[in-house]
């Protein structure tokens, strides 16, 4: 008899989490590089657009007043690439526990700064997806939902890893 089914709840949550969070992370990273300026050709214009987009994102990071200009610039120039790579790794499912833990940690960090800004009534843009998006209660709720999904996915990923795989388990 199979010890677990591919359709059990934890496995389904892990799959959903991978697809939703992986997709969101890839899109969030791409959007920060590609918006608001979306020019693909010629090469110097593409380069300028990406540079302008990252400068704008750096300004949005700095507007949270958590990091100085140097720290904000560093975050702005690394985070989009980290998001894309982590999103792709989540989607592949390879070493899921490691990447799920990292995604959860990053999302907890996002939720912390977003909640802080909301409670301080900071009139700023969220900086989440490249385009201007005012930070509101909805932003906090959305981030909290993603954190919840990431944490549940991570916990289930660890639990599922301890169980034998349903297709390779002895009958």
């Amino acid at each position: 008899m199979m010890q677990s089914s591919p359709l059990n709840v934890p496995r389904a949550v892990v799959w959903l989490g991978r697809l939703i969070l992986g997709g969101i992370f890839v899109y969030a990273g791409y959007a920060k590089l590609a918006y608001p300026n979306h020019n693909l050709w010629p090469w110097f214009l593409l380069k300028f657009s990406v540079s302008a987009n990252l400068s704008t994102f750096a300004f949005q990071v700095e507007s949270y007043k958590v990091l100085g200009p140097g720290g904000s610039s560093f975050v702005a120039h690394t985070l989009p690439f980290v998001e894309i790579v982590l999103g792709l790794l989540l989607l592949t499912g390879w070493k899921l526990r490691v990447w799920a833990t990292m995604v959860s940690a990053i999302l907890v960090g996002f939720l912390t700064v977003v909640t802080r800004a909301y409670l301080l009534h900071m009139d700023i843009n969220c900086g989440c997806f490249g385009t201007p998006e005012p930070l509101t209660l909805m932003t906090v709720i959305r981030d909290a939902t993603l954190v919840l999904l990431a944490l549940v996915m991570t916990i289930f990923a660890y639990q599922e890893a301890r169980k034998p795989h349903p297709w390779t388990a002895r009958q």
Binding site: P36, N37, F44, L45, F48, S49, S51, A52, N53, S55, T56, A58, F59
Partner: peptide
């Protein structure tokens, strides 16, 4: 071009 364009990038452009 939208957003806060840095001088170095604008200068190169």
């Amino acid at each position: 071009i939208s957003g806060v364009v840095g001088y170095d990038a604008l200068h190169a452009f």
